[in-house]
Design a protein around this nucleic acid. Structure first.
Lengths: 127, 127
DNA sequence: TGTCATTCAATGACACGTCATATATGTTGT
DNA sequence: ACAACATATATGACGTGTCATTGAATGACA
């Protein structure tokens, strides 16, 4: 802990951590309370809802999130069991999985997304 | 997922998440590999090393980090068992604990901090 | 075609964080 | 001094993430 630059660097990092934890916590609690899903669950729903094409997505979604492949697999598993998402095996590559929102998933996502955006607006530092 | 403002908001949030996970991951791996401690362990060491006064600190440290009280307690416990920190009970309020780096803790922190700052410099978005 | 390496997803062992509590101490009001 | 409440830390049960590995399918190439 020497130079002022270092102090500033560390302060910057702490502020990132703080807004990350603070915001993630708020999201987590609200989504859990109102919709019975966690933040990671929502994020997968959000990614899938946001996916336009018909590619085999499980893998590609992994590239759009810092989540581990293993974590993804487990979250998707929970979502599947909750009836919010469906996994369909790909015709052209049977190792891959194709994800799709169920009607319930789509409906829940629509509501939850509103809440999610609102909380981001409240919690994220302006600009 | 309607307005462009919303898209931008979500993109902003995802970028925070990404830099958070990416940076935290890099720190975690490096500290673990070179010093045998996790990121949270380091962060406590760092806070204690950075504490000037003689207040009963366990509680007050909690205010400088997004960590839960429970998490703090467990991290400190690990650090204690690793011989890097010592907990001394406060004279004037025996519920409180006073934290102090051991010599080993101080030495390790000195090295680890250098690594830590360097990695922050590499990973954090400039400005 | 048969081997060997590669890729996608799932799983088990394990570590760590969270929540709800427990325990000990302190404080306040009567 | 005695309840009743408040505060500081510790702990146990539990969920979820990570790493390493597995299983299945594919690719590459002699």
């Amino acid at each position: 802990m020497a130079t002022p630059q270092d102090r500033q660097l560390v302060e910057h990092w702490r502020s990132i951590q703080t807004t990350y934890f603070h915001t993630a916590g708020a999201l987590e609690r609200a989504l859990e309370a109102k919709f019975g899903i966690g933040l990671t669950e929502f994020e997968i729903l959000d990614l899938v809802a946001d996916s336009t094409d018909a590619a085999c997505r499980m893998k590609q979604l992994g590239e759009r999130t810092p989540m581990t492949q293993s974590a993804m697999s487990k979250v998707v598993d929970r979502l599947d069991k909750a009836g919010l998402i469906s996994r369909q095996s790909c015709e052209d590559d049977r190792r891959s999985l194709f994800l799709e929102l169920t009607d319930a998933g789509r409906a829940l996502h629509r509501q939850a997304a509103i809440e999610h955006r609102a909380l981001l607006r409240e919690n994220l530092p302006k600009e």
